[in-house]
């Protein structure tokens, strides 16, 4: 037979665990700004699909393409993406914000985001954006 005191203790413990879990979930929703990140491409998706970086600081981003097909990682505002959607440039050499990712390859780029706000990173190879190869960079103070 469980007495009233034990029941209250059990309920309190359960509530505490739930609270800790909820905090963990909330905390996981918005990662802290980082200067060293990794983005993995698998099944033509970016993981994570959102990163948070500090403004005005060089950010090292390791891009891992685990897919057997080529991809690209292009970060910028809507004007940048509008150009790439209709562009025909097969390669984007020497641009930290435009990285070609051959199949099963790793590339590292260093980008300094000068303005706070939200940018997107997209693969502009035919059909890839429509398939969901889109992510967001949140640049914070």
């Amino acid at each position: 037979m469980i007495d009233r005191r034990s029941l209250l203790l059990a309920l309190a413990a359960a509530a505490a665990l739930l609270g800790i879990g909820a905090l963990a979930v909330v905390g996981a929703g918005r990662p802290p700004a980082a200067t060293d990140l990794e983005i993995v491409v698998r099944y033509s998706r970016f993981t994570p699909f959102e990163i948070v970086v500090p403004v005005g600081v060089p950010v090292t981003i390791r891009l891992v393409n685990d897919d057997p097909i080529d991809h690209e990682w292009i970060v910028g505002d809507e004007a940048v993406h509008a150009v790439h959607r209709v562009g025909t440039e097969p390669l984007h050499p020497d641009r930290p914000t435009e990285v070609v990712l051959p199949a099963m390859s790793v590339a590292t780029t260093v980008v300094t985001f000068e303005e706070p706000g939200a940018l997107r990173y997209i693969c502009h190879l035919p059909g890839h954006e429509a398939y969901g190869m889109v992510g967001t960079v949140r640049v914070v103070q």
């Binding site: 698998r42 099944y43 033509s44 897919d67 057997p68 097909i69 199949a103 190879l125 890839h128 398939y131």
Partner: peptide, 24 residues
């Protein structure tokens, strides 16, 4: 999937975005 993708690329073909998941 990786080997077949490499074969396709070597033969001048570009697989669509869903190919990695489908091939696997």
């Amino acid at each position: 999937a990786a080997e077949v993708g490499a074969w396709a690329k070597a033969h001048g073909f570009r697989l669509p975005a869903d190919a990695p998941e489908v091939l696997e």
